[in-house]
């Protein structure tokens, strides 16, 4: 069984984000970039399926300029077998991303596609769902557990009311939530091996996909600065302030 994992290069979650002075976007100059944490969980899940003897090959893909190869190599160091980069000048929007992944799915014919539920930069949470619509495959989003039985994937989903388990006929799409697993560290020998694993580069044009923008970014504002707090003398005072000043209870 072949597993395809699509990953995104985002700014590192430890980095304090700064907005450009003209508010046109977030300032990414000299910012440390990393594999999106949800994508890292997706890779880990695929590698675990391979280690359990269920998956036979783990292919990892990413979309973007040459720099995304760094994140593909990271995924290869975690245990994926080979990489595919779809080269684009900028980071495309979710729908274009989903269309590009759908093309790769057409070529590669994986039985399972795992994606992060969302990227921590744009927080869109829609690529997996769009991909399901484009490919007509079943989807198990916000997964906290994945089990493969015969020709089915049993996916436990973290929904508002608790946990929901769905059975999907393969091939299917899974998007990972935070509690699906705890990703490993890449070991030194695996980082070295990753350098030698195959990495194919294709352009969006080669795949016959035209990248289109459907939205326009108007401006970016930093969150309001946190105001200093106050100390209250008693529980009664706290409750009073929550009720009458903050009006939250």
């Amino acid at each position: 069984m072949k597993v395809l994992v699509a990953v995104k290069r985002v700014l590192d979650h430890n980095v304090k984000v700064r907005v450009k002075s003209d508010h046109s976007d977030v300032d990414l100059t000299n910012i440390k970039m990393a594999l999106n944490p949800f994508c890292e969980i997706a890779v880990e899940e695929a590698v675990r399926l391979k280690e359990a003897g269920i998956a036979t090959e783990v292919v990892v893909m990413s979309i973007g300029p040459k720099a995304v190869q760094e994140q593909i190599r990271t995924a290869l160091a975690l245990g994926a077998d080979r990489g595919i980069q779809i080269e684009t000048d900028t980071m495309p929007e979710s729908l274009s991303v989903a269309k590009l992944i759908a093309k790769v799915v057409e070529d590669e014919r994986p039985s399972l596609i795992i994606l992060g539920k969302q990227a921590i930069d744009s927080d869109n949470n829609q690529t997996g769902q769009m991909l399901a619509a484009l490919t007509g495959m079943g989807q198990g989003t916000f997964a906290s557990d994945v089990e493969i039985q015969d020709n089915e994937a049993l996916v436990t989903r973290e929904v508002d009311g608790g946990l929901q388990t769905v059975a999907l006929r393969l091939p299917a799409i899974v998007t990972s939530d935070l509690r699906l697993n705890e990703p490993r560290y890449a070991s030194l020998p695996n980082i070295m091996k990753a350098k030698k694993k195959p990495l194919d580069v294709k352009s969006a044009a080669e795949l016959g996909i035209e990248l289109r923008a459907h939205t326009e970014l108007l401006k970016v504002e930093p969150p309001a600065e946190r105001q200093g707090g106050i100390k209250v003398a008693s529980v009664e005072e706290l409750v009073d302030k929550l009720k009458n000043e903050a009006k939250v209870i």
Partner: peptide, 15 residues
């Protein structure tokens, strides 16, 4: 440089 950066990242991840 790529190998050196991958090593830095790897060690930082563990640390």
């Amino acid at each position: 440089i790529d190998a050196i950066n991958a090593i830095r990242e790897g060690v930082r991840g563990l640390c």
